[in-house]
Design a binder for these strands. Structure first.
Lengths: 201, 201
DNA sequence: GATGAATGCAAGTACTTGCTTGCGTCATGC
DNA sequence: GCATGACGCAAGCAAGTACTTGCATTCATC
């Protein structure tokens, strides 16, 4: 299905521009990213950028579509072990990887409403986490129904997702001081707190 | 010490400009907020704004200083009950109120590095949470030492703060669907998970 | 009633930024 | 060998934005 090999030169420059847009927008946001800088990073003339995408907005949504597509996770759910802790670690890992790779775009989507007319890339950036979220909710509901978990499934899901996102944020914010930067270690800790709490009985 | 009553007209307009800046920057960020819009929101001529603060940067740091000052919390810690759960709820409430009131500015500080030369308002916005954080760490250390909690005090603190911040974010993001929007209810839930976990034994 | 400080108003400067255009160059494919 | 499509380059336009300036107005204080 995917043919990376024989890209036309036109598609190559298109991809370079998209990658540059992704990078610059991650740093400066939609508004702060100038077409000049994107073109420069892509090693391409600014005119070329407009010849490819028409407007800046066209580039923005093209890049959102390219990088924030909904990830397929049906298969990942298929191979859940059944053990509560292991399942949560597996789901959490999926979540964490996704949130980490989209972190900057998601952060921007928290503040930049679509400052222009067309569709917001924030929505795109969130769609993927949202899709995962619905899977998480479904899973939590099953576990609550089975009596393995207590509480409201949606609250639990939001909490679970939120603590992972907070951890991803924290790794950027407190990069220097973060003691558990290995993802697996951190995830096991988060799941532990989620399941056991941290109080000594 | 504080004399709100008899403000000179000059101080009044200054405060109106600061409030407008706070509002507009919360919506558009430092870069997106134009001096025109701030002046308009303040009901003040743009020239007046510059006569007061010199540059846009001057206004930015003045507003950060005005609205993101470090809150005094010594007294709040003083009246902790000693009961672990109650203490965490109390500290969490303090955190939550603070994070909620600064939420938009904090979100902007997550993405907008100082796009200009002077001191970043992000640092200002974080200073207050940071100050609270150090108190939380200190508290957690005491509790770990006393055997009430298990784990690394800093990890626990980051986690505790992170889950509250995630909840504050979630309340904005999932405002429509959030089931526990009452702060106290949510906080008790968060502290419960923190202390007990959510697994049925 | 005069003075001076604070502000409004309007015009303007210098720079950024999205976007266009016309032209020259180069490679690929018929 | 030549046509076509993709690109670079340079110049430029129009709108927005930070910031300035000179002048008129208001208003409190002496």
């Amino acid at each position: 299905m995917i043919a990376i090999a024989h890209l036309s030169t036109r598609d190559q420059t298109r991809d370079r521009i998209l990658a540059a847009a992704r990078e610059v927008i991650g740093r400066k946001g939609k508004r702060g990213a100038t077409t000049r800088e994107i073109a420069e990073v892509a090693g391409v003339n600014e005119a070329t950028l407009f010849r490819h995408f028409g407007h800046k907005d066209g580039l923005l949504s093209a890049m959102a579509q390219h990088y924030c597509g909904v990830v397929e996770l049906k298969d990942s759910i298929g191979r859940l072990s059944g053990d509560l802790r292991d399942d949560l670690v597996a789901i959490g890992t999926l979540l964490m990887v996704r949130l980490e790779s989209l972190r900057d775009l998601i952060c921007w989507s928290l503040v930049e409403e679509d400052f222009q007319d067309r569709q917001p890339i924030g929505g795109q950036a969130w769609r993927s986490p949202d899709a995962i979220m619905s899977v998480v909710i479904e899973y939590m509901q099953r576990r609550v129904a089975a009596g393995d978990l207590q509480g409201d499934a949606e609250d639990l899901s939001r909490f679970f997702m939120g603590m992972i996102f907070a951890h991803v944020l924290g790794r950027k914010k407190f990069a220097a001081t973060a003691s558990f930067s290995e993802p697996e270690v951190a995830l096991r800790f988060l799941v532990s707190v989620f399941l056991n709490g941290v109080a000594n009985k």
